[in-house]
């Protein structure tokens, strides 16, 4: 069981590296109506659906920190935000909610837009850039939708990984 867990975590780590490369390498993911997908938080969320709280938070911290590192500005917002989301998702999935695509999509629809909207508030609107709401519509809406499109893909992938590597 421990061996399977280690292999699972190695696979998650490889997924994190691939997601980071996908997210930051120019021209790898196309830009859609001014927005690009933020893959790492979605990956952390899909991992936390199948893992207990502590590993979920650790993977969330790694994904969030990498997101902060690649973006301009200090480390903090995504590092903390994704950890909190991963803890909540892991607790919900473990105790209250049935794990299936519908429930994961509902949770993602609540968490991802909220996270990106708060990012917009703190890093854009409160900073005082002009025409903030126009910018939100032209950039953040497409970014949110594009990011949510990765939820079923990553959920399916990690569901498969967890199913194969959870028991003999």
């Amino acid at each position: 069981m421990k061996r399977l867990r280690v292999i699972r975590y190695i696979i998650f780590s490889i997924e994190i590296v691939v997601a980071y490369i996908l997210q930051t390498t120019p021209y790898l993911l196309p830009e859609v109506y001014g927005g690009k997908a933020v893959v790492l938080p979605v990956l952390a969320l899909s991992i936390s659906v199948f893992e207990p709280q502590i590993p979920s938070m650790i993977f969330g911290a790694v994904c969030g920190s990498l997101t902060d590192l690649s973006a301009a500005g200090p480390i903090g917002y995504y590092s903390v935000g994704v950890v909190i989301i991963c803890y909540i998702v892991s607790t919900l999935m473990e105790n209250y909610v049935k794990t299936n695509l519908a429930s994961v999509m509902i949770i993602a629809l609540a968490c991802i837009p909220l996270m990106l909207f708060v990012h917009f508030l703190f890093y854009y609107l409160f900073v005082g850039y002009v025409d903030a709401w126009t910018f939100f519509v032209s950039h953040y809406v497409s970014r949110i939708i594009y990011t949510l499109a990765f939820v079923p893909v990553l959920y399916g992938l990690n569901r498969r990984v967890s199913a194969v590597l959870r028991s003999e």
Binding site: Q23, T24, T25, P26, L29, G35, K36, A37, V38, T67, S70, A71, A72, H119, Y124, F135, H139, R143
Partner: peptide
Amino acid sequence: KVIGRDPLEN
């Protein structure tokens, strides 16, 4: 060389 363009960079 440009090695990265972050999606959160506006």
